[in-house]
Amino acid sequence: MTQAPAAADSDAVLSAPDGARIALRSYPPTGPAHGCVVIGGAMGVPQSHYAPFARWLAARGWRVFSFDYRSQGASLALGPSLRQSRATLHDWARDFESVVAHARATTPNGPLLLVGHSLGAQLPGLFAQPDQVDGLLAVATGIGYWRHYPARQRRQSPLFWWGIVPVTTALAGYFPGRRLGLIGDLPRGVMWQWRRWCLHPEYSVGVEGAAARASYARVRFPISAFLVSDDEMLSEASLQGLLALYTGAPQAVQRVVPEALGLPRIGHLGWFRSACADALWPLTEAELHALATLRGQGTEATSTAVVAC
């Protein structure tokens, strides 16, 4: 029996609670849906980066949503210019949660899972209603505290955080990352807030205080994390620092070594590239199914264990 052709993905505009407009893309499932997946992207990475992976998941029976944070990617054309943008990381968390609420409305009874890449696994800790989520699959993530960076990145950090960021952001009115070949263009409010986070050992909760710490502690959905051994941006210490913020969430970690899977490299951005599809995406889907089975079981928080693959 031949497989039914995949339905076409579609673009829409979603309004955040404060009226900001968010570029949203949906990928309908082929056949009955296993559940719903919302992809939360990394800092400065447009949703188009995740499109091949989203289509692959949809073809295997998942309803998938991706989006661009305000003032990023396709959402930039829907609001003020980067120089005029007043966006913060708290706004981006609200954008993410607005997409989750929209996705939950499409799948009121099935599991709703997040695939969080880097920043996309940090922001769910700031959700106002984390109980909308049934699980988080975290990829190449961790806190951005600069002393936890891998060695090369750590050596370059003083110049970046105390030199390049303040000077270029002040001159341009936003962080001109594209011209510098660093991260991407970011609103100044996002960059200044992120800088404060990255200079504090406890990252977001260290800067934002008791409210942020309590917000992370309210999360009860299980978290499964992939630690990428050759991630040039975030180390194992970074990941452990992030998981330590989610004090009430069941957690598990798998360490992924590219050579063990026949890959020359994965790095911070490689997981969602088509070149890694055969080696990494089936592993990702299997973990999504595992998270879906935990839905509603009331699992208590567990200590993390690292499993190499």
Rank of each mutant, 00 (worst) to 15 (best):
T304P: 14
D131C: 05
V100H: 12
N109P: 06
V37D: 00
S81C: 08
W281Q: 05
V38S: 13
L76P: 01
G35E: 11
G79H: 14
G116C: 01
L234E: 03
D91T: 05
P52K: 02
R60L: 07
A121M: 00
L280N: 00
L263Y: 09
D185W: 10
A214P: 07
L57R: 02
V99S: 12
A286S: 06
R63P: 01
R154L: 06
V307S: 06
T88D: 14
T168E: 02
Q72W: 07
G125P: 12
L245T: 11
F272P: 04
T302Q: 03
L82I: 07
M191K: 10
P111A: 10
V13F: 01
G125T: 13
A77I: 13
P111V: 07
A140T: 00
D185H: 10
L261V: 04
A286T: 08
E202C: 12
G267Q: 09
L136D: 02
R21Y: 05
M233D: 06
R265Y: 15
A301E: 07
L123W: 11
A16V: 04
T88K: 13
P46G: 07
M43V: 15
A244E: 09
P250Y: 00
R70E: 06
F175D: 05
G120I: 09
R179P: 10
E259C: 09
G19C: 06
R155F: 00
V190C: 11
F221G: 04
S71D: 15
A12W: 13
C198N: 05
V257K: 11
W56T: 01
E300W: 07
Y149K: 04
R273W: 06
F127P: 14
H102P: 04
D278V: 12
A54V: 03
H102C: 11
D185R: 11
P111W: 10
R155M: 03
H90W: 11
G163Q: 00
D230I: 14
G61P: 05
L269H: 15
E232G: 13
A121Q: 02
D9I: 10
P258V: 03
V115L: 02
P250V: 01
F53Q: 09
L171G: 10
R55F: 09
A301L: 03
S118C: 15
A33S: 15
G142V: 02
T168N: 01
Y149S: 01
H289Y: 10
A305S: 13
P111E: 08
A23D: 08
L294V: 00
R188N: 13
Q3S: 12
R104W: 11
L136Q: 01
L14M: 08
